[in-house]
C-alpha cells in the first residue's frame, strides 16, 4: 500500500453552516488555479477577432471622441482645466476597466455552470480571475494615454502618478466586491442579466465620468463619494494629470464603501457557494 496516512489530511464534508464561514485560506491554497483561470481568459479574449487587442484601444478612444464632442464641445461641461480628450480618456480608463471586469465577473457562475456541477474548487476564483484578466486591456489603454494622448495635449506626468496603483487597487477591489454580489445573485436569479446593463448605465451618470466631481456641491461630496467609483475616477484624473486633487472626504467615503462592498460580497458569495451546484 502506497498510502501514508500521516501525510494525508482528513476533510469533513458536512451540511453548510448557518453562520459565516470566511474560507479564504482555501482559496489561497488554490492560487495556482487562479493563475490558470486568468491565463485562459487572456488566451480566449480576442480569439477569432480581426483586430484583437486593438479593441482595448478603440473602445476608450472612440468613446472619448464622442464624449469630447457631445459633453465637451456641445454641452460645454467643465473639465477642471484639463483638455477634454485627456479629461474624458483618463476617466474612461478606470470606468471601462470597471464595467468590463464587472460584467465578466458577473457572468462567471452561469458561464461555468458545467464545470461547477462537475468538480470542486473554490468558486470565488472565477469572478476574481475575471476581474484580474481585465487588467491586460487596462494596461494597453493606459499606455496609449501616457505615450500618445498626454504628450499630444501637452499634459505632463507629475509625481502624483505614484498614487495611481492605489486607485487602481481600489478599482480592482470595487469590481471584485460588486462582481461577487452579482455573480452569486446571477447564479440564482437570471434577472441579473437584465439588471446589469441598466445598472452600469445609471452608475456611470452617478460617477464623474462625463463631468468633474467639483460640480457636486461641497456638503454633498461625502455622500457622492459613497459611490466608490467616484473616488477611483477622481483619483485617476489627479494621479495622471496632477491637477484637480480630489477632496479628502470623497476619498475616505469611497474607500470605506469599497471595504463594505467587498466584505458583503465575500459573505454573500460564500453563503451561496455551498448550494451553487444545486441552483445554478
Amino acid at each position: 500500500m502506497i498510502a501514508q496516512p500521516q501525510e494525508m489530511k482528513t476533510i469533513r464534508i458536512k451540511p453548510p453552516p448557518r453562520g459565516v464561514d470566511l474560507n479564504l485560506a482555501e482559496a489561497w491554497a488554490h492560487r495556482e488555479l487562479l493563475y490558470f483561470f486568468v491565463w485562459r481568459q487572456l488566451k480566449l479574449r480576442y480569439k477569432q477577432t480581426l483586430i484583437g487587442a486593438g479593441w482595448a484601444i478603440l473602445q476608450p478612444l472612440l468613446t472619448m471622441l464622442t464624449f469630447s464632442l457631445i459633453f465637451g464641445r456641445l454641452a460645454r461641461l467643465p473639465s477642471d482645466g484639463i483638455p477634454y480628450p485627456v479629461f474624458y480618456y483618463s476617466g474612461l480608463l478606470p470606468w471601462m476597466y470597471f464595467t468590463n471586469a464587472l460584467t465578466a465577473a458577473t457572468n462567471t457562475m452561469v458561464d461555468h455552470q458545467r464545470v461547477i456541477t462537475k468538480v470542486y474548487f473554490p468558486r470565488i476564483l472565477l469572478p476574481v480571475a475575471a476581474v484580474l484578466a481585465g487588467l491586460a486591456d487596462f494596461a494597453i489603454a493606459l499606455v496609449v494615454l501616457l505615450l500618445v494622448l498626454m504628450p499630444m495635449y501637452g499634459v505632463a506626468v507629475t509625481a502624483a502618478v505614484l498614487a495611481l496603483p492605489v486607485f487602481l487597487l481600489l478599482a480592482v477591489l470595487t469590481a471584485v466586491g460588486v462582481g461577487l454580489w452579482l455573480s452569486a445573485l446571477y447564479a440564482v436569479y437570471r434577472d441579473v442579466r437584465y439588471l446589469l446593463p441598466f445598472l452600469v448605465m445609471l452608475w456611470m451618470f452617478l460617477s464623474p465620468v462625463v463631468y468633474p466631481s467639483s460640480m457636486v456641491p461641497g456638503p454633498w461630496r461625502w455622500l457622492y463619494g459613497l459611490n466608490p467609483m467616484a473616488g477611483v475616477i477622481e483619483g485617476f484624473r489627479w494621479a495622471l494629470t496632477g491637477s484637480a486633487q480630489p477632496s479628502g472626504s470623497l476619498l475616505v467615503a469611497s474607500t470605506a464603501a469599497v471595504g463594505l462592498l467587498l466584505l458583503g460580497g465575500i459573505l454573500c458569495f460564500q453563503r451561496l457557494e455551498a448550494t451553487i451546484a444545486d441552483v445554478v
Partner: peptide, 17 residues
Amino acid sequence: ILGRVTRPTAGYADVTG
C-alpha cells in the same frame, strides 16, 4: 457530495487524502 461539488443536507463524510 464526496467530491465536494454539493453539500449534504444532513450527515457527514470524513474523507482522508
